[in-house]
Design a protein around this nucleic acid. Structure first.
Lengths: 116, 116
DNA sequence: TTTAGTACCTTGTATCGCAAGGTATATTTT
DNA sequence: AAAATATACCTTGCGATACAAGGTACTAAA
């Protein structure tokens, strides 16, 4: 049994949430997104990201604008739509439910999350 | 865009983790598992669970014993193997990484999780 | 004998992550 | 100017999984 596959499966659906979280802070283009996710310790490759962005755009969660670059081809800057913002709130709930589920299964005791 | 599908996708891979967490506390059979997951606010149906249990058994993460029931057909009680316990620890790490990623994307800071 | 309840299992579909490709534009090097 | 490099976008095919919608087998009650 393969740990990498398990981690990959865990990512399913999470990636959509993470991208919404990220774009909630401001527009970004694909390489931006990959870089920022990497900094948040989530490795994503192009073959995963591009179809996902296209799907989210078709579902009206995202919109984009072309922007010129000083070095290289133009970039597609993605941003959340109003639908995207609303959907993000739904996924926030879903995520909270999921963490709560894991905490209950883990030990049934409360877990305190504190920022540093 | 469909919230239910998104939640379903979020569950992918998580279910395996949740079942390992649950069986870590003691053996259970399928209906048991569904019931306990429901109490932890995770809805799972038979068509999802049975193939998953079979797969985890084939991967040597789980073993089972038949046990007579006083009312109805015999039950398959599943329990973790040593491999399953080890794999659970890997998934604990993966889960912690994932929660950390979401927290970073949420507010830009790492978090400390402390049990009470 | 029939019905209801419990438990186990299978098939087909939709979706997603990913590896491994490919295309197009701009800049630098030769 | 031509070739090479870098950057950015995109597609195809595959493997894995959740789920709906079926089905089978055993037991007990009506």
């Amino acid at each position: 049994m393969n740990t990498e596959n398990a981690k990959s499966q865990m990512r399913k659906g999470m990636l959509e949430y993470c991208i919404l979280l990220l774009l909630h802070k401001g527009p970004a283009y694909a390489s931006d997104i990959i870089q920022q996710l990497k900094e948040a310790q989530l490795i994503v490759v192009e073959g995963t990201l591009y179809p996902l962005l296209t799907r989210m755009k078709n579902d009206r969660l995202l919109k984009y604008e072309w922007q010129e670059s000083t070095q290289g081809p133009p970039r597609k800057y993605y941003a959340l739509t109003l639908d995207g913002e609303e959907f993000l709130r739904h996924l926030d709930s879903a995520w909270n439910e999921l963490t709560n589920t894991v905490n209950i299964l883990h030990n049934g005791s409360e877990v305190v999350i504190s920022k540093e």
